[in-house]
């Protein structure tokens, strides 16, 4: 299997790893967004909290998530390594360099944009993942009226095994969910305006990173054809550069305004 290591040590092999991991992370963004969009549901966080429990307990998801962490770290540090390698290729810098004349700003600042995103991820994990896993997360009891579908909720102070218990109170005809309330942490966290600003800025960085990154990954994979280039470019710009970052950015703003 010597050829694999030789291949991956070549400049094209190195960037192939960036492209493949980048595209994988793009698909993760879609999953992450679709889950998080449940924050915007007017149910006091029932759907979101249920989703959070599913994502943290399902063995398959857990397995995938460790892979995800590894890939995020790999993508970030491999990228930084390549940036440094590439810097070495030009030991003496230009006194005058007009990059804007020949390329997009974002394509030349992928390393910086990526570093911002990495810093954001650390903050983001600290804010929510660490709090949820290691912090003192409150529990909430949701009661959903099975006849009307109306949901009410109140703090839950009792003890349950695990993160969630779900049962039906046939007498009152309600479905009761007692669950670890990540939603509350989110709602509480985004009361801080400065955190919201950091999140919004980070989403802007993500946007620029993906405007270049998405289509760049296809080019790296060798996918470049007149018929499909516009499609790839448009998905990169509209879906990953505009829609996804905006939807992500809406969440902190939503909670800030909610307060």
């Amino acid at each position: 299997m010597n050829w694999i290591s030789t291949f991956l040590k070549s400049s094209i092999g190195k960037k192939l790893l960036m492209g493949l991991t980048g595209l994988f992370l793009c698909t993760f963004l879609i999953v992450h967004l679709s889950g998080n969009l449940q924050l915007l549901k007017h149910d006091g966080g029932l759907a979101f909290n249920t989703y959070a429990v599913f994502m943290t307990t399902n063995p398959l998801i857990k397995f995938v998530s460790y892979g995800l962490y590894a890939i995020i770290l790999f993508h970030a540090f491999w990228g930084l390594y390549l940036v440094m390698e590439n810097k070495k290729a030009r030991p003496v810098q230009y006194a005058s360099y007009n990059g804007n004349a020949n390329s997009n700003w974002s394509s030349r600042w992928m390393g910086v944009l990526g570093t911002i995103i990495l810093a954001f991820l650390i903050l983001h994990m600290w804010n929510f993942w660490a709090q949820y896993k290691f912090g003192t997360t409150p529990y909430t009891q949701y009661e959903r009226n099975l006849a009307t579908g109306k949901v009410t909720f109140s703090p839950f102070t009792g003890e349950i095994a695990g993160k969630m218990e779900k049962f039906v109170d046939t007498e009152r005809n309600v479905e009761i969910t007692q669950v670890k309330d990540l939603y509350a942490i989110v709602a509480d966290g985004f009361k801080a305006w400065w955190l919201v600003i950091i999140y919004v800025i980070s989403m802007a960085a993500l946007s620029f990173h993906l405007v270049h990154g998405f289509s760049s990954a296809f080019q790296t994979l060798g996918v470049n054809h007149k018929k499909y280039n516009a499609l790839i470019k448009n998905i990169g710009v509209w879906l990953f550069g505009i829609i996804i970052p905006i939807l992500f950015a809406i969440m902190p703003i939503y909670f800030l305004l909610l307060n």
């Binding site: 400049s11 960037k15 070495k88 390329s103 394509s107 992928m110 289509s215």
Partner: peptide, 12 residues
């Protein structure tokens, strides 16, 4: 030489 990051500056 460095590696390609698809900025497109070369072609431009």
């Amino acid at each position: 030489f460095g590696s390609c990051t698809n900025t497109g500056a070369c072609s431009a």
